[in-house]
Design a protein around this nucleic acid. Structure first.
Lengths: 241, 241
DNA sequence: GGCCCGCTGTGAAACGGTTCACAGAAGGGC
DNA sequence: GCCCTTCTGTGAACCGTTTCACAGCGGGCC
């Protein structure tokens, strides 16, 4: 949150901006200066694409402002959303390290401001600053863990369970406590929820209707409020045994 | 291949063993000595488990000899095989870098010989030898790429297509050219093929029967020979357009 | 030699989800 | 105010895959 508010004031100091990116946290002023010398900036309008799966490209990007989504769209137009990016996140690490084409498409959801670091500049920096390399490896490790967990869920869980888990996760990350429930402070149209859990909008709708009927959740204009967390935990498969 | 034969002679020299692991390739004798001072060894019998998903644990392991499989088994006993490990591979990088419990189970398929490196010893080494850290990051990046590709395949491709792709990939990695076809030099019972492509044994069997009938492949005692590669490429979805 | 175990082969039934085709409601732009 | 777009709601038909239940086959072990 301090990060976000710092960004809203738009500091002109490049070091501060860089320091607000998680993988660069803890670097000294001098190191941030070094890094700053090799960073570019980039602005994207909503819906603009940063890069597309299959593109060549080797830059790493850090999100200063705005939200982006990382997804993979095969030729058959089936979209699979991997994750959302927010201020402080980095993206493009995969192609940075294994020097192949981009493995997913990244698109701005809202207007975004980014920093860019080219591989030819960044790799030498990483060789001088191994802690940053290790932090980037940790980012990759975390993504790998999350993705494999998701694959597993998607293969062994039904849609209601997956949806319940997703909502509970969103409550944890974007929940705002309020009389009688927790409201998820994020626009969540059903087709987006569908992408997030690997289901169609129709299937999401069907399940949400059931929960609204049973009083487990409440929906108004794209915002979901969880009223009965225990009920969701139940169908998420966390409850029984 | 030179790696494999070097291992069969079982060199006593720890540096040589370490140098045969891909992520440690290119290190100097001195660096290998440093590394050797902090490596342990481990032997596993066939079917023995190295670690289980959910275990605490922070060591990185390198495979010197034998094959292992990395899979995830939820409480509901549904197994999802991520990959196989062979000599030269490392495993355990995820928990090494993000310091959480193990994200998958690793089991020996055949008797195996491993090297182990504890996080408390390895991280300081990585801080001194950033190129190795970067190589480990590249391993993670590659896994992430492969896993996301697999998720995508599994979500948008039918079983015949997935199976065809898997067989073609196996032909590339383990194929032996022979009169009229390419034989995959690896035992492939149908239930294993099923795990590899995310399908049941029965579904695999059904498709293989079809291919045997059309003369695209040939099967004898768990070994598959691809006779008509083009036919597989066709159903893999590589052919049309 | 006999028995068991791991692997293969097969078909019927059930299931979970998608696809498709609509309809209606809400909000924003001009 | 109107239109257009985005989002929600719903039901029927369809489809790929799994589940289950069974049969046969071969090889290794004692």
């Amino acid at each position: 949150m301090s990060t976000a508010s710092a960004l809203q004031t738009r500091p002109l100091d490049g070091r501060v901006m860089l320091g607000s990116i998680r993988v660069f946290e803890g670097l000294s002023r001098r190191e941030l200066d070094l890094l700053h010398a090799i960073t570019g900036t980039k602005r994207l309008r909503a819906r603009e694409v940063l890069f597309r799966k299959g593109d060549p490209g080797s830059a790493l990007y850090a999100v200063l402002r705005g939200r982006m989504r990382v997804f993979s769209s095969g030729p058959d137009a089936k979209e699979l959303v991997f994750r959302f990016l927010e201020a402080g996140d980095v993206v493009g690490e995969v192609a940075l390290f294994d020097a192949q084409v981009r493995s997913a498409t990244v698109e701005a959801v809202e207007p975004c401001e980014l920093l860019s670091l080219q591989r030819r500049d960044l790799l030498p920096f990483l060789e001088q600053h191994p802690r940053v390399a290790i932090k980037l490896a940790a980012v990759l490790a975390r993504s790998l863990r999350e993705l494999s967990q998701r694959v597993e869920d998607e293969l062994s869980l039904t849609i209601p369970a997956r949806l319940a888990r997703k909502l509970l996760a969103l409550v944890r990350t974007h929940g705002a406590e309020l009389a009688g429930g927790v409201r998820i402070e994020q626009r969540l149209p059903q087709h987006i929820l569908g992408e997030l859990v690997g289901a169609t909008r129709e299937s999401v709708n069907k399940q949400m209707r059931i929960w609204v009927g049973s009083g487990a959740i409440q929906v108004e204009r794209g915002y979901v409020t969880v009223l009965d967390r225990a009920a969701l935990e139940e169908t998420a498969g966390y409850g029984p045994i």
